[in-house]
Design a protein around this nucleic acid. Structure first.
Lengths: 233, 233
DNA sequence: GCGATTCTGTCGGCTGGCCGACATGAGCAT
DNA sequence: ATGCTCATGTCGGCCAGCCGACAGAATCGC
C-alpha cells in the first residue's frame, strides 16, 4: 500500500547482473502465448519457473464457484511461478496472459542449480519473494480492515506507485488497461462496488478519466490513500 | 489449506545442515522475551532476522482502528522477520511473544553474507518464503471466497495439519492454546462468529473439546474442510 | 482461598455490500 | 451500417455477519 516510498520493483531480470542473466538465459526456453491463454494452471506439475519478457500476465486463484482471486499482475522482466517450484506440491494458482506475451521458462532443477551457483541471484529471488509477501500481507490487512471504497482508493495508489508516471504538475498518469472486474478481483469485491467507488472518487476530484482508460490521479490527493486516508464518505 | 498433503514445515533451523547451523548460530544473539512482549514492531528499522528457539510468537498487522490481523504463528525453529530484512523499508508488522520465548537474532548484513556463502541455506530461505507465500495466497482466497463457517473449518484443518497429532483411530488431537479472538484475527472475522461456527461444528460432531482446550477432530470428518467441503449449513 | 481479568456463549438490531436485473455505451468484425 | 460482445452505470431487495450488550465460566495473581 505504501505510496511513493520504496518502490517495489519485482522486475527480476533487469536487476540481475549481465553475466548472471546470460547464464540464466542459456537455460531458458522461449515461448509465445496468446491473449487469454494459460501459461500454467492449478493442478499442474509446477516444474518450471517463468519470466515475462514482454506482455502482461495475471496470477490468480480460482475458487470452486468460479470466483477469480487476482494475486498480482506480472509485467515485463518479472519472474513468476516461483512459489510452487521452490516449495513443491504442484501449482495452486493460474497464470494467464492478459495480452500476447513472450515467456521464458526454466526447468525447476536447472533453476535450483543456477541459484546454488549464483549467490547474488539467490539473494535477488529472496528479495522478490519477500517483497511479494509484504504486498500480500498488506492486501490481506486491507481486506479485513477497510471497506470497499477505501480498498479501491488504496488499489489506485498501489497501481500508481508501480506503474504510474508523474507529470510536472504532480499529477500521476496511469495508462494500464484494467477492467472494473479485474480490480474487484484484486480487492475481493464485486464489479458494481468498484464502479460506484470509482465514481465517488471521481466526484471528489481525486481521479479523472481522460479519453480512453487513461487515469489521472490528482497530485494533491495522491498521497491520501497512503496515509490510510479515509474517503470522508 | 491443503490438508494432509505436503506438510508445510517452515522450521528453518531444523532443516539447516548441522555445519550451516553452527555457522549461523555464531552470528546470533540470544534473548529471552516475556509473554506479551513485542519482539519487533511496525515502524522499526528491521535490521535483524529472528529465530524462535522456544515458545510461541505471532506476527500481525495492526490497522489504524486497532484491529489485529494475524498473519501467522511462529513455532520453535522457525525463522521470522525475514521479509522486511530482505527487502528493506522497515517493519510493517508486529511480532509478539505469546508465551515466554527464546529468540535468536542475527543482524541483517551478517545474515546476507551468511546466505551468500551458504547456498543450501539460501535455497532453504527461498523455500520457506515460497511456502508462506502460498499460505498467504490461500488465506486470501479463502477470505473472499468462503463464508465464516467454512473459513473456521479450514482454519482447524490447517492447524491440525501443522500442529495436530494423529491418534490410532484416525482422530487428530490439537493441544495448542488459541483463543477465539486469535482465530478470528487469522480469518478476518469477529470473535462471536468464531464461537458460533465452532459450536456448529461441534453439533455436527466434527470437533470435540476435551478437558481444557484440547481439541479433537473426528478422523472421518477431518478431510472435509480440505476438499473445500461445504458445511451443508 | 478470593477478587480481577480474560475468555466463551448467546441474542437482536442494523447495515455494507452482494446479487440479480437492466440499460447504455464502446470496441470490433463482417 | 449492423450486429455482437464486452465494459460501465445504476437501482433495490436481501442477508451474512458486524457490533454492542450482557451473563456465565475459566484462568490468573496474590
Amino acid at each position: 500500500m505504501q505510496f511513493s516510498t520504496t518502490r517495489q520493483f519485482p522486475d527480476f531480470l533487469a536487476r540481475l547482473s549481465p553475466a548472471d542473466r546470460a547464464d540464466l538465459l542459456q537455460l531458458a526456453m522461449r515461448r509465445q502465448v496468446a491473449k487469454g491463454e494459460l501459461i500454467f494452471q492449478a493442478g499442474g506439475a509446477g516444474d518450471c519457473v517463468h519470466f515475462l519478457e514482454a506482455g502482461r500476465a495475471k496470477i490468480y486463484h480460482l475458487s470452486l464457484t468460479g470466483k477469480e482471486i487476482l494475486l498480482w499482475f506480472c509485467f515485463p522482466d518479472e519472474i513468476f511461478g516461483l512459489a510452487e517450484v521452490c516449495h513443491g506440491g504442484g501449482r495452486q494458482v493460474y497464470a494467464e496472459a492478459c495480452e500476447t506475451s513472450q515467456v521464458l521458462s526454466v526447468a525447476q532443477e536447472d533453476f535450483k542449480t543456477f541459484l546454488a551457483t549464483h549467490a547474488a541471484a539467490a539473494l535477488l529471488v529472496i528479495d522478490v519473494l519477500a517483497s511479494r509477501l509484504r504486498i500480500l500481507g498488506n492486501t490481506l490487512q486491507s481486506l479485513v480492515a477497510h471497506d470497499v471504497n477505501e480498498r479501491v482508493a488504496q488499489l489506485l495508489a498501489q497501481l500508481a506507485d508501480r506503474h504510474g508516471r508523474r507529470g510536472e504538475n504532480g499529477d500521476i498518469y496511469l495508462d494500464i488497461r484494467i477492467t472494473h472486474q479485474e480490480m474487484a478481483n484484486m480487492i475481493g469485491t464485486t464489479r458494481q462496488s468498484v464502479t460506484s467507488a470509482l465514481n465517488i472518487l471521481r466526484r471528489l476530484g481525486v481521479v479523472e478519466f481522460d479519453d480512453h482508460h487513461h487515469m489521472r490521479l490528482r497530485g494533491d490527493h495522491a498521497h491520501i490513500p497512503n496515509s490510510h486516508g479515509r474517503l470522508s464518505s
